[in-house]
Amino acid sequence: MLKIENLDVFYGQAQVAFKISLHIKRGHFVGLFGRNGSGKSSVFRSIMGLKPPRVEGRILFNDTDITAKPSFTISKMGIGWVPEDRKIFPNITIKRNLQLGEKSNKALKSDRLFSYADAYRFFPKLYEMRDKLGSQMSGGEQQMLTIARTMMGNPSLLLLDEPTEGLAPNIARDVMKMILEIRKNFNTTTIVVEQFSETLLKHMDYCYVMEMGEIIFTGEPRLLLDDEGLQRRLLGVG
């Protein structure tokens, strides 16, 4: 579904990612782990066609070259992005925030599409607050809104950039639970960027680890899960 070939990523003259190659299969749940500043989010920004950065290499989505296409085109092709700092719109209501994400994805074969009812079922708080402004939400509620808003576009590929960053542990647990629930219901191909998440890793099909802009590990999640030494060496955890 998504193939990244020899991707170099630059901010001005500074190169932040080197010869990144990823291959994501349809329906898979994939992790892209790494410490802060390892270049994970830059890879997501490159996939979404956001500027900066500037990219060299190729990004293929369903065999179409989407390298450096405008972000609205990429979104319309079926890639949904949940950014790390949430980027909700505080000046409009929660219902309208959801409305902004709403679009039909003709490329999606599934007859099961994500609707307002799903948004409110997975995240009941959004229903209670639907007429309130985005600025009135807590961090956890904002994260739920961001995920629901992106799902309203019925993406074929979902990019989740540090979805639990800055959340209290119990809220982070809830958010992860919802991500897994949504995946179970919609089978959306998903890539999650995190520093590390054992909970999510247990459900993943594949994972990558980045360090200093390079992929330093590629493999089955259990290789990471079962080897605390490897976790410590690659990610500084365990």
Binding site: L50, S75, K103
Partner: peptide, 10 residues
Amino acid sequence: FNSEMVGALG
């Protein structure tokens, strides 16, 4: 408020 995010939403 955030034109980048509006673009990323299609």
